[in-house]
């Protein structure tokens, strides 16, 4: 996308610069309209944008939660200024500030808020999804490798905003089994 944008920028600036050099062509309004407006203005812009939209919709579709057998469900609730997480695989257990997930398995995080609008964001795992009071939004994430990932809140929510975040711990299968069984590490 960046390369494409750079290319378009270069092309247009080139055309712009060339305007200061071209001389001595017979003025022809009809031809100019055809070249500049119909050709470049409509034709060029539309084809680039059409390609980009199709690409965006397709790749966004890939990120949508789909049914699967080994999907893990986690509930995330944001408040000023903390996050708490509950687990379908371990009913009744709530962790504050740390979200436990298994590595290598898709996880559906159901996000909501107890007070104002927040946004759930684990930059290395997925894009953002808002936590809105009264609504539950679900995002599909998957950590390829076990480890700790930084999670952030990404919608301004008052004075504690800068430090409002959480950690995501992705466990290997054994550690996840321990966690589900109640063996906290």
């Amino acid at each position: 996308m960046l390369a494409g944008a750079g290319g378009i920028l270069g092309l247009v600036l080139l055309l712009l610069g060339a305007a200061f050099r071209t001389r001595g062509r017979a003025p022809d309004e009809g031809r100019d309209v055809k070249v500049w407006i119909v050709g470049l203005g409509l034709g060029f812009t539309m084809s680039v944008l059409a390609a980009l939209t199709v690409y965006g919709v397709y790749s966004g579709q890939q990120l949508m939660p789909r049914d699967g057998t080994d999907v893990v469900s986690v509930q995330a609730e944001a408040r000023r200024w903390s996050w708490s997480f509950a687990y379908a695989d371990r009913p009744g257990h709530i962790t504050d500030g740390i979200m436990h997930i298994p590595a290598g398995r898709p996880v559906d995080v159901a996000i909501t808020s107890a007070d104002v609008v927040h946004s759930f964001w684990v930059p290395r795992l997925a894009g953002k999804l808002d936590a809105i009071p009264g609504h539950v939004n679900t995002i599909r994430i998957e950590a390829d490798m076990p480890g700790t990932y930084e999670g952030l809140t990404a919608e301004y929510n008052g004075p504690g905003y800068s430090d409002h975040g959480f950690a995501v711990i992705a466990h290997d299968p054994q550690a996840w089994a321990d966690f589900v069984a109640g063996g906290d590490r």
């Binding site: 500049w36 944008l49 966004g60």
Partner: peptide, 26 residues
């Protein structure tokens, strides 16, 4: 998303019309 990219079309028409105007003149 499609509507948002579509809005770039009339913008593109204007930008190219302006550059074309520059080409047309001195």
């Amino acid at each position: 998303s499609a509507a948002s990219t579509l809005v770039a079309v009339p913008t593109g028409v204007q930008v190219f019309a302006w550059i074309g105007t520059l080409w047309k003149g001195r």
